[in-house]
Design a protein around this nucleic acid. Structure first.
Length: 194
DNA sequence: CACCCGATTATCT
DNA sequence: GATAATCGGGTGT
């Protein structure tokens, strides 16, 4: 298994969101490896996407979405939670990122339970705010390069056939409901059901 | 500087 | 299934 290189993220944001399913997100902290298979994602495009933070002007908060591909975009929401995104876009798009919404736990489940102060394995990583807490991802990781450093990165995982991928409207937003830019692996137990 | 509200979650009933 | 908690960014005055 090798770390996904930068060229992997050099594609249309929506395509990148589909392609990230089955990949493994890894965080090494204090010698402990915490990881999970990406099973649910959402694509947020730039100026053309009314639901995106990058709709409109570039601001200090959303700057990462306009930055280099293969970097993290982490933001704080609802006064409580961090959400983790990966910047991915083709050259001519000014902004775009993929929100990671759910993981299937692989390694470091013990540490996840400590980080989350929860024991039920089902509630560790099914949800964007839950998985960042489980992996110990915070605002400090905003704009971190996921292809260069060795503590937070993405590696190749299981192959996911396109007929296993389900597309739906994105969760928790009002605008652009007609865009089917939420993707998840069909039947996966860690996908948050509405 | 005040106001509004969100890419959510936990904790009730 | 309904709702409170919680707070920083964005916008307009």
């Amino acid at each position: 298994m090798h770390i996904l290189e930068r060229s992997f993220y050099n594609r249309d944001t929506v395509t990148a969101a589909r392609s990230l399913l089955g990949k493994i997100l890894v965080h090494q902290v204090d010698g402990v490896c915490i990881s999970g298979i990406i099973v649910e994602t959402e694509a947020y495009c730039g100026r053309d996407d009314p639901a995106s933070h990058a709709y409109g002007n570039k601001t200090p908060r959303n700057a990462a979405m306009f930055g280099d591909i293969g970097h993290a975009y982490v933001y704080f929401i609802y006064g409580n939670h961090f959400c983790f995104n990966i910047v991915a876009k083709v050259g001519d798009a000014s902004a775009g990122a993929v929100l990671i919404r759910a993981l299937e736990p692989v390694a470091g489940i013990n540490q996840m339970q400590v980080n989350r102060k929860a024991t039920n394995p089902r509630l560790l990583t099914n949800g964007p705010g839950r998985l960042t807490q489980a992996l110990g991802i915070t605002g400090e990781h905003n704009v971190v390069d996921l292809t260069k450093q060795k503590t937070l990165y993405v590696v190749d995982g299981t192959r996911v056939d396109s007929d296993q991928v389900v597309a739906t409207p994105r969760i928790g937003i009002r605008r652009a409901q007609d865009k089917l830019w939420r993707f998840y692996i069909a039947g996966n137990q860690w996908v948050l059901q509405k």
